[in-house]
Computed example of a mutant assay.
Amino acid sequence: MRFTLHSIRDRMDRAGVVLSGLCALHCVASLVILSGLGIGGSFLLAPVIHEVGLALACVIAGVAIGWGAIRHRRAAPFVVAMMGLTFMGGALASPHGAQEAVLTIIGVIMVSVGHVLNLRSAH
């Protein structure tokens, strides 16, 4: 199987969309499980999960969307995704709870939209 730079970037964009969805699912599930059942707090709210998630999002979005912006010369995917990463970074600075979840979900939606725009711009 031959991988081209274009197919690698497409795969990274798709991975970014999937990871954004998983992050949103983690946020909602954490709130539901913790508020409804009161269990899993030490694992689900561990800061390292959020820090690693943001680091992965920054790398994947930076490479895939940055690379795409250079190739197709459209700033919108890059701007939308970077705004999303900013929301996600703001969520790390917030205490655990609804505010953090809202900021994170806004951020992951924006990053995901940036990846989708990037995929559309490339074709």
Rank of each mutant, 00 (worst) to 15 (best):
residue 1 M to G: 15
residue 2 R to Q: 14
residue 2 R to K: 14
residue 3 F to Y: 10
residue 4 T to K: 06
residue 7 S to D: 11
residue 7 S to Q: 10
residue 7 S to I: 00
residue 10 D to F: 01
residue 10 D to T: 12
residue 10 D to Y: 07
residue 11 R to P: 01
residue 12 M to S: 05
residue 13 D to K: 05
residue 14 R to Q: 13
residue 14 R to G: 06
residue 14 R to T: 04
residue 15 A to F: 04
residue 16 G to P: 04
residue 16 G to R: 00
residue 17 V to W: 09
residue 17 V to Q: 00
residue 18 V to S: 14
residue 18 V to R: 09
residue 20 S to V: 03
residue 22 L to Y: 10
residue 23 C to G: 11
residue 23 C to V: 15
residue 24 A to G: 11
residue 24 A to N: 07
residue 25 L to Q: 10
residue 26 H to W: 12
residue 27 C to L: 09
residue 27 C to D: 10
residue 28 V to Q: 15
residue 29 A to L: 11
residue 29 A to F: 05
residue 31 L to A: 14
residue 33 I to P: 05
residue 34 L to V: 04
residue 36 G to D: 14
residue 37 L to G: 12
residue 38 G to I: 06
residue 38 G to Y: 04
residue 39 I to D: 09
residue 39 I to M: 14
residue 40 G to T: 02
residue 41 G to I: 01
residue 42 S to P: 07
residue 43 F to L: 10
residue 44 L to G: 02
residue 45 L to K: 06
residue 45 L to H: 10
residue 45 L to R: 02
residue 47 P to V: 14
residue 49 I to E: 08
residue 50 H to E: 13
residue 50 H to I: 07
residue 51 E to Q: 13
residue 52 V to N: 00
residue 52 V to L: 10
residue 53 G to F: 01
residue 53 G to T: 05
residue 54 L to S: 10
residue 55 A to V: 11
residue 56 L to N: 04
residue 58 C to Y: 08
residue 58 C to E: 12
residue 59 V to W: 10
residue 59 V to L: 13
residue 59 V to A: 06
residue 60 I to L: 06
residue 60 I to G: 06
residue 61 A to N: 03
residue 65 I to K: 04
residue 65 I to L: 10
residue 65 I to G: 03
residue 68 G to F: 02
residue 68 G to K: 06
residue 70 I to M: 12
residue 70 I to G: 11
residue 73 R to W: 10
residue 73 R to Q: 11
residue 75 A to L: 12
residue 75 A to Y: 14
residue 76 A to S: 15
residue 76 A to G: 08
residue 76 A to Y: 06
residue 78 F to E: 05
residue 78 F to R: 04
residue 78 F to W: 10
residue 79 V to S: 14
residue 79 V to N: 08
residue 79 V to H: 11
residue 80 V to M: 08
residue 80 V to D: 00
residue 81 A to R: 03
residue 82 M to F: 15
residue 82 M to E: 15
residue 86 T to V: 11
residue 87 F to I: 10
residue 87 F to G: 07
residue 88 M to V: 00
residue 88 M to R: 03
residue 89 G to R: 01
residue 89 G to H: 01
residue 89 G to T: 02
residue 90 G to E: 05
residue 91 A to R: 07
residue 92 L to A: 05
residue 92 L to C: 05
residue 93 A to M: 13
residue 93 A to P: 11
residue 94 S to T: 12
residue 96 H to D: 14
residue 96 H to T: 13
residue 97 G to D: 08
residue 97 G to N: 12
residue 98 A to S: 14
residue 99 Q to G: 15
residue 99 Q to W: 12
residue 100 E to F: 04
residue 100 E to Q: 15
residue 100 E to C: 07
residue 101 A to R: 02
residue 101 A to H: 02
residue 102 V to N: 05
residue 102 V to R: 03
residue 104 T to Y: 08
residue 104 T to F: 08
residue 105 I to P: 00
residue 106 I to K: 01
residue 107 G to E: 04
residue 107 G to H: 00
residue 109 I to C: 08
residue 111 V to L: 00
residue 111 V to M: 02
residue 111 V to P: 02
residue 113 V to F: 08
residue 114 G to F: 00
residue 115 H to I: 03
residue 115 H to V: 02
residue 116 V to N: 02
residue 116 V to G: 06
residue 116 V to I: 09
residue 116 V to M: 06
residue 116 V to S: 07
residue 117 L to P: 01
residue 118 N to G: 04
residue 122 A to Y: 04
residue 123 H to T: 15
